[in-house]
Amino acid sequence: VSEWTEYKTADGKTYYYNNRTWESTWEKPQ
């Protein structure tokens, strides 16, 4: 699942961004 990158927002929430599909999600990808 290497295309997903984990980021943190300014208020400390974690989200995930897909470099291949430009998708972002709050849930941890499978």
Score class of each variant (00 low, 15 high):
1 V>H: 14
1 V>Q: 14
1 V>S: 12
1 V>I: 11
1 V>E: 14
1 V>W: 13
1 V>F: 15
2 S>L: 09
2 S>M: 11
2 S>N: 10
2 S>W: 13
2 S>K: 08
3 E>F: 07
3 E>T: 04
3 E>V: 06
4 W>F: 04
4 W>L: 02
4 W>K: 00
4 W>M: 03
5 T>W: 09
5 T>S: 10
5 T>F: 11
5 T>P: 02
6 E>F: 01
6 E>I: 04
6 E>L: 02
6 E>W: 04
7 Y>K: 13
7 Y>N: 10
7 Y>W: 12
7 Y>G: 07
7 Y>T: 06
7 Y>H: 12
7 Y>D: 02
8 K>A: 06
8 K>D: 03
8 K>R: 12
9 T>I: 02
9 T>N: 06
9 T>Y: 08
9 T>S: 08
9 T>G: 11
9 T>V: 01
9 T>D: 11
10 A>L: 08
10 A>P: 13
11 D>M: 03
11 D>E: 12
11 D>A: 05
11 D>F: 05
12 G>Q: 01
12 G>H: 01
13 K>F: 08
13 K>Q: 12
13 K>D: 11
13 K>E: 11
14 T>M: 07
14 T>F: 09
14 T>H: 06
14 T>P: 08
14 T>D: 06
15 Y>I: 11
15 Y>P: 03
15 Y>L: 09
15 Y>M: 12
16 Y>W: 15
16 Y>D: 03
16 Y>H: 01
16 Y>A: 00
17 Y>M: 09
17 Y>R: 06
17 Y>G: 04
17 Y>L: 10
18 N>T: 00
18 N>P: 03
18 N>M: 01
19 N>F: 07
19 N>Q: 11
19 N>M: 08
19 N>H: 10
19 N>R: 04
20 R>E: 15
20 R>D: 14
20 R>T: 14
20 R>S: 14
20 R>V: 15
20 R>H: 14
21 T>M: 03
21 T>F: 06
21 T>Q: 02
21 T>E: 05
22 W>L: 15
22 W>V: 07
23 E>D: 05
23 E>F: 03
23 E>A: 02
23 E>K: 03
23 E>V: 06
23 E>M: 02
23 E>Q: 04
24 S>P: 05
24 S>H: 13
24 S>D: 08
24 S>A: 10
24 S>K: 14
24 S>R: 07
24 S>T: 15
25 T>P: 06
25 T>G: 08
25 T>W: 13
25 T>N: 06
25 T>A: 13
25 T>D: 04
26 W>H: 12
26 W>R: 03
26 W>A: 12
26 W>E: 11
27 E>N: 07
28 K>I: 11
28 K>T: 07
28 K>E: 09
28 K>Y: 09
28 K>W: 09
29 P>L: 03
29 P>S: 05
29 P>H: 05
30 Q>L: 13
30 Q>M: 13
